[in-house]
Design a binder for these strands. Structure first.
Lengths: 148, 148
DNA sequence: TTACAACAATTGTATATACAAATGTATGTG
DNA sequence: CACATACATTTGTATATACAATTGTTGTAA
């Protein structure tokens, strides 16, 4: 991946700017790859993330603030995100009996089954995205990311 | 930045998955920072990018396909992106006289003036985002990003 | 007990982005 | 020249996301 070539520029870019641009280009590539593998399941990355959180609850229902707290990318509208999961039959929502302000969201049987398939697809995507990295380089990446 | 803490999980995440999640968390942070500094100028990162490309043309008008080609993040609707720049008086658009399918987009005086200020703000953001990195680490990052 | 603040989720609205279809223009072939 | 094809942009439509305002509920202090 050559930055200057991709954005078709001939001038030299200051290292900091170049790093940010480089990061964004990688981000685009990752997003493309992930959207592609999730597409057959008709869920966005965010929806997939919520499904995984719900499964991680192991039966214990989650409310919206919990979901928001645990999502990789926090959203300003988890209600509507969950709406999408409901309409696909992947999740279930009812108001919490002990506190009717809250809502209890769970993953359905169908949701779990689909999620299993999505997991495989995601693993594939991850392997593809990181195919050129060995163990040591991955650790290096994580170390550097810690500095952000 | 501790991944497990941010997404509030206690289980250990496989290194590849962790790397992708870590990347996304960094991405969120970068986006927040950049949106924040561009907000006063009422332009999105994409619009800012187009303005910079237009300036880089040094008077030579650009058409939509050229813009798309050079953008860091390719968009499926550059027409409407340019609409926004027009409505702010930052850019100008006319149909190309030699080929009326094409369109000639240029940056306006006002656009250049505002862009100068945005540049300063962006530099600030870049410095802030990368404040914990020294030269060598930045080069390391760029080297690793090349592997994607 | 009422009044008020804090909480949790939902709704309204605006903008951003993705994708497909449509429009208008230019070019090449019989 | 008529036609088909390719090109460049625009428009329509659907979804995603951001932010603010609203609704309904609970807890609490006077």
């Amino acid at each position: 991946m050559n930055v200057e070539e991709i954005i078709k520029t001939d001038r030299s870019i200051p290292l900091k700017s170049r790093t940010i641009i480089h990061f964004m280009l990688v981000n685009n590539k990752i997003n493309e790859e992930i959207s592609a593998v999730l597409k057959p399941y008709d869920v966005s990355l965010q929806q997939f993330n919520v499904l995984r959180i719900l499964r991680g609850q192991k039966g214990r229902p989650a409310n919206l603030s919990t979901l928001n707290e645990r999502m990789v990318t926090k959203m300003s509208n988890t209600t509507r995100l969950v709406d999408k999961l409901l309409s696909k039959g992947y999740a279930d929502r009812k108001t919490c009996p002990s506190n009717r302000r809250k809502v209890e969201i769970t993953i359905t049987k169908k949701g779990e089954e689909e999620l299993k398939k999505m997991d495989l697809a995601m693993n594939q995507a991850e392997r593809k995205i990181l195919q050129n990295f060995d163990q040591k380089e991955l650790e290096q990446l994580n170390t550097l990311f810690n500095k952000f």
